[in-house]
Design a protein around this nucleic acid. Sequence first.
RNA 1: GGAGAGGUGGCCGAGUGGUUGAAGGCGCACGCUUGGAAAGCGUGUGUGCGAGCAAUCGUACCGUGAGUUCGAAUCUCAUCCUCUCCGCCA
Length: 432
Amino acid sequence: MLDIKFIRENADAVQENARQKNYEVNITELLKLDGERRELSQRVDELRERRNAIAASMKGGKPEQSAIDEGKQIKVELSEQEGYLNNLEAEVLTLQKKVPNMAASDVPVGASEDENVVAKVIGDPTAFSFEPRNHSEIALQRGWLDKERAAKVAGSRFAYLKGDLVKLQFAIIQFVIDSLSDEKVLAKIAADAGLDVSLKPFTPVLPPLMIRTELYDAMDRLEPRDDRYKLEDDDLWLQGSAEHVMGSMHANEILDENDLPIRYLGYATSFRREAGTYGKDMEGILRMHQFDKLEMESFTVGEDGLKEHLLMVAIQEYLLASLGLPYRVIQKCTADIGKPNARGIDMEAWLPGQNQYRETHTADYMTDYQARRLQTRVRRNSGDLELIHTNDATAFALGRAMIAIIENNQNEDGSIVVPEVLRNYLGGKEVL
RNA sequence: GGAGAGGUGGCCGAGUGGUUGAAGGCGCACGCUUGGAAAGCGUGUGUGCGAGCAAUCGUACCGUGAGUUCGAAUCUCAUCCUCUCCGCCA
């Protein structure tokens, strides 16, 4: 959520920003209600002041009947006015929550994802001496994938992964955890990217996979609800990304500046209903209701937020390059970065089986937009209290990482060359 | 699932209807003291909203939400969380 004072002082820019991000909001209406709210709030405060004065005059000795009568009268009036005020405050909050975060100044303005900008292309599309197949065909041939039985048990967009594919997933997980909890690796990544940032390692986390409505909403990740799984008997949802359950873990906390940055590397099975994608990407495991993901989340002081974002992007590039995958970096435009985002970067890996790049990573920088509703703050060494900045970014969505490995590293016979960095985690095997 | 106890400021902890935003302690900041430090002494030390150039003032906040009352941290109800015991269970 944006600060109401900021909205007041930058009404035009906020309205224009919402337009560029394709969110319908009426800033004029919001500010009108906010003005009414402030006026009414003042009237209510005056009534309360009078009420308090009367109550104070009655402490001890026997109450004067006239004072009690006035108190009663004020109570009636106050309860009516407070009712109006509560409604107004709720209306203002509802509108205020709809206002998207301000896009950073270097985010390209665009009306749809078609106007995203390819910022960088690394590696050439993998060349083959035979016709490369898609991951689904290979995985089926190798007995690594069973979607028919998964459909029988759980429905469409579920899968049983089996055999070496499972070992590959755990190898990737180990590799990422080892890399990101190693200060030396971070130092190299930061140096290569020319970033002067903290080298504090990421703490591996296994988070809860369920989250309360209130916190999900405060994260601004509950919408669209159609894409979330709700547990009807409890006030809980299945999380759609470890970001949701890690970003909310310091809600209503005041962190010590000396403890920042706080960096987490969460591993979580993530759930998405994929509403509105019927018939899309049905082959293989590209788009599932359930997928495992390694996700970075970090909390920093405001002035370090952007650098942290850039570090995460550099980490993503490092991870993709470590696996030897061709990829490109997409700078998302205003319409595509998302409501809470100030900036958003996607990585797309080359998939020979589909003959195109497909999204494997996202990096989101939210400035203090999430922190304002989460009430995650930092006590600066100066004594000041400030909202922290949040960043999240994919380390690897395991399913898509394995799709990329299978398709780029395939041999004609359906065997897969293991990326060098993973071999130690697979008993030294060079080919699966 | 059953029975019980409890949630108060950065932390510990008093407080069962009326100068309580909240005693006391710890911590922290500043000052005095000291060759320096510790101890000691003194002063100060929450957040949100609104008004004000500011000093400051008003208001709300004692897990959360409703209610009773002229007046609620204190009484009532609901709810969440923590702990103990029993049951169940990987």
